[in-house]
Design a protein around this nucleic acid. Sequence first.
DNA 1: GACCAAATATGGTCAGACCATACATCCTGG
DNA 2: CCAGGATGTATGGTCTGACCATATTTGGTC
Lengths: 252, 252
Amino acid sequence: MTTEERRRPDARPRAFEEVLARIEERITADGLTVGDRLPGERQLAEQLGVGRSSVREALRVLETLGVVASQAGRGPDAGAVLTSRPGNALTDLLRLHLGLATLSMREVIDTRLMIEQWAAARAAAAPPPAASTPAASTPAASAHTATARMAEAIAAMDAAGDPAEFVEHDIAFHLALAEAAGNRLITAVMRALRDALRRYAVDAVVRLGDTGGLQDDHRRIHRAIEDGDAGAAAAAVAEHLARAYPESGRDS
Amino acid sequence: MTTEERRRPDARPRAFEEVLARIEERITADGLTVGDRLPGERQLAEQLGVGRSSVREALRVLETLGVVASQAGRGPDAGAVLTSRPGNALTDLLRLHLGLATLSMREVIDTRLMIEQWAAARAAAAPPPAASTPAASTPAASAHTATARMAEAIAAMDAAGDPAEFVEHDIAFHLALAEAAGNRLITAVMRALRDALRRYAVDAVVRLGDTGGLQDDHRRIHRAIEDGDAGAAAAAVAEHLARAYPESGRDS
DNA sequence: GACCAAATATGGTCAGACCATACATCCTGG
DNA sequence: CCAGGATGTATGGTCTGACCATATTTGGTC
């Protein structure tokens, strides 16, 4: 009975939390968006009546959450700039909690299965609306629709020389699949899941030996999406994941 | 072309990043787990050859990710203790990126739909294995299986006096639904989604006026899960979410 | 033995200093 | 007038040292 509700439910907020709240307030109130700059650390400290270290801790939190990125030096790009990188936070979150055994590999794999089935069905049901993703997600993909990148990834996997290389393109394939659904939140989660499973995936490929079956699955998924057959797409994904992760990860 | 790849891809790591790596290394290497204590900030600083402020920034990051919790004072519970609260990080992540317009409400709602359909089907397919959740998720739920809590939430919604109260129990219902699937990662994501949508949900209830339809849905979902009918459970969830969020959230 | 006061360990915060970096500015030479 | 380098300066990154707040531990006192 010693450790019972040991949080800080009340407790007056710490200085950096106040800074955090004020910065967030400023973001929503002033309508700040990606690319805008925050005041310098010293200036912010003075404005909010706190020490610079408290400001720094708040900025560190925001950086962890993928909301700001700091750059030293001078000029338009220096200082704390608002960004939008939720992916790193999710990746760190998964890695650390997997390390702490808070999450099991099985749970991560099941989550991935859920996302991919959903994304495949969704991508098949809704054809790419002209310019793929509306907002800034992957600025590099202009003429590249997600399905086209899936096809490229399949070809690259055919040409891959070793398991590690195969997995890299496999990651690209499944990421493109998630992006095809056009949901940035799910894309970010998918990216984090794949990062967490990267090593695991290499082992799986090595264990299988032959990647022919996997490639057959990939082609079937791709075709089902292009044909607009949501049911077939989801089924193909389920088969594929079952082949890649056959009941493994029964730990915990 | 001014802002092109402005990250810090190389750049020698900052001190707090080194601290972060060493702490994570220690966690995995020494097999530290929830409840274990880290050395004090001063001691850690000396061990790693950095200033205390760098240690503090690293701890702030870990706290943001829900891996440690710090407590002042003295005694067994003081200091930085390893915890496991991935939920807060996800909630903050969603809230901030919604504020930055990196994510749209529609994307969040669609993600929620995906999770609930999956969870309902999963919960229906796999009956509760005796003691619901194995690890520490909601320590209060000992004799309470997830489905039992769903029934309780339905009753509480019937008795609710105002929309805010109704939504609170609605949240409990949907959280129990997610927990019924027995995946802690998905439960954590679901909790974050609901927190992000809380205000939105109240508006939706007020707009609907009558909560009878929602309650019918809730009962149908609950019954389908108890009957083990995965298809009916998923369909009921889809209908329910369509009723609650009818094409709204078309922003961005 | 019970109770209260002092010591102490811990995180929280601040102030100031210095370094590294990278753009801005100015000065010089052609 | 322009090109190029030297200097200036604003920014984040880091350390040191100090002090405060809190909560346990310790020890003294009745």
